[in-house]
Design a protein around this nucleic acid. Structure first.
Lengths: 279, 279
DNA sequence: CGCTATTTTGACAGCCGTCAATGAACGTGG
DNA sequence: CCACGTTCATTGACGGCTGTCAAAATAGCG
């Protein structure tokens, strides 16, 4: 009826999910990209820190205020998840919780007939499944978009951390509110903006977040591992229509894409396109 | 381009907002309904409690676990807000916060060209602007759908309550998560469900919530003060199309409406209509 | 250099938006 | 008790944005 019926090839086995890191030199994620769209997505060349003290993304993490040693003591193993693998399934009760160290993921909901709605894209430094800290199962699934390195934290340890007087719980609440505000914006996108506006907003949003992470390329472009299928499922459109609208933005010289990366050619005009509606 | 350009007649003066209760007998809200759609929406005949101890909705409120006396000490005045008046504006810094005692409200976002997206409908017992407890301004506006009675709480008192070890902060976090889960469902509605499915889900949702509040009519129907314009702005549709889809559901003997109230004639089939996609 | 995944393009259809007219419900005032 | 005005719901004609289907083109990969 609408669109997006699909079955993930990756849905059956979750053996990978239990894989541990086994390489120690160079970026683990730089090899074995399965397909074109991600081929040029070059993750930063950082060895997963044996010490949290030196972790480059700790500052942006939920527990950024805590000392490296404090975190080190509570954290579990790192996990490597290949692109397209499922990290977490709706309704699942997980015994651990993750921060993305490297790579992209996304959270989504599936309808029984295969329609999919992507709720959010998750970048390095972001926490997966915050709700698990208070609820015992989760209302969405999470899948790796690129190969992803996760820092795991056993639930038990996390609860201990939260029980302390370290502001962690306030920080979690703040992030929950920020996420909620984002959802409200997305809801407004899907309810009241057309395809062009939605796409422009998504691109501006991702670009902005990557900028904050200092993850833009030297030429100001940004890595863009999404396939149009992902864009479509995030924006409530079909891949075909996404292709058309992207062509439109390109024709208007607002954006350009090279394989796996995206350049915003005219941010002010993109903003203008979008800010007929506030924010 | 899309739809829903409008300017609220009520946007200019907020004098009403400062009105205090001045009648003590009978339901304050039973008189002066401005228009047909709400004419039959009969609020329960409860005098706003001088004592929180006897408040019938305290149990469902955020602070439901606290004693009536404890709340009594912290709360401010009650406020009467007429239907269609704005309770709270996006970006506003409010010095107090509310629980709905009686009546319905809704939260929404406006685009500069007048398009409106309704985020949620707010029923008695629900808290208005939870985010204000952690952020100092709010990302949406709130408007009274019917005449509404609000119990106000000065910000300062609320913060005091939250600072205590009474589980209030955990309860707030839980409600935030529940709200977020609801938003995720709505996002999936707008992105991946068609008009009929969206409408069925909205009606089931409202009916269910009213049932929990024990606010159904004797015949199992439920009060329904929404105009089709509200339904449209909540579902990302136009009023005209809402009218058509409601006609469709009526023709299929799934629902029926009398003035101001709604009957779900066949809940199982409504569910079936919707649960082609997992809730 | 063939294979596969993905994007692009075209033709067409349908859901939903737009516009405008009509109708129904309700309150008001004579 | 009945004209009248206002608000909202309904209906019809029409158009456009977006979906569907299928084929072609492109890109990356071994």
């Amino acid at each position: 009826m609408l669109c997006s019926r699909r079955q993930d090839a990756s849905s059956s086995d979750r053996k990978y999910f239990r894989d541990y890191i086994h390489r120690q030199n160079g970026s683990i994620l730089s090899a074995n990209y399965p397909s074109k769209a991600r081929a040029e997505f070059r993750p930063s060349r950082i060895v997963p820190p044996t010490s949290c003290r030196e972790c480059p993304i700790r500052a942006t993490a939920l527990y950024g205020r805590l000392s490296g040693d404090e975190i080190e003591r509570r954290r579990g193993d790192c996990r490597l998840v290949r692109a397209r693998r499922t990290i977490l399934r709706e309704g699942e009760r997980l015994q651990e919780v993750y921060t993305i160290f490297e790579g992209w993921a996304f959270s989504y909901k599936l309808l029984v007939d295969g329609r999919r709605q992507i709720l959010s894209f998750l970048l390095p430094g972001e926490f997966i499944a915050l709700p698990l800290l208070r609820m015992d199962s989760v209302t969405f699934s999470v899948q790796a978009l690129t190969d992803v390195l996760l820092c795991s934290f056993p639930m038990k340890n996390m609860r201990e951390l939260f029980a302390q007087e370290n502001g962690l719980s306030a920080e979690a609440q703040a992030r929950c509110l920020a996420y909620t505000a984002g959802l409200e914006d997305r809801l407004t996108d899907l309810g009241r903006r057309n395809a062009e506006e939605r796409l422009a907003r998504l691109l501006l949003d991702l670009h902005g977040r990557l900028q904050q992470l200092d993850a833009l390329n030297d030429d100001g472009s940004c890595p863009f591992p999404l396939r149009q299928e992902h864009v479509a499922d995030a924006l409530g459109l079909t891949p075909v229509h996404v292709s058309r609208v992207m062509a439109l933005l390109k024709a208007e010289k607002l954006i350009s894409t090279q394989s796996g990366s995206l350049t915003l050619l005219d941010v002010p005009r993109l903003r203008a396109l979008v800010e007929r509606g506030r924010s």
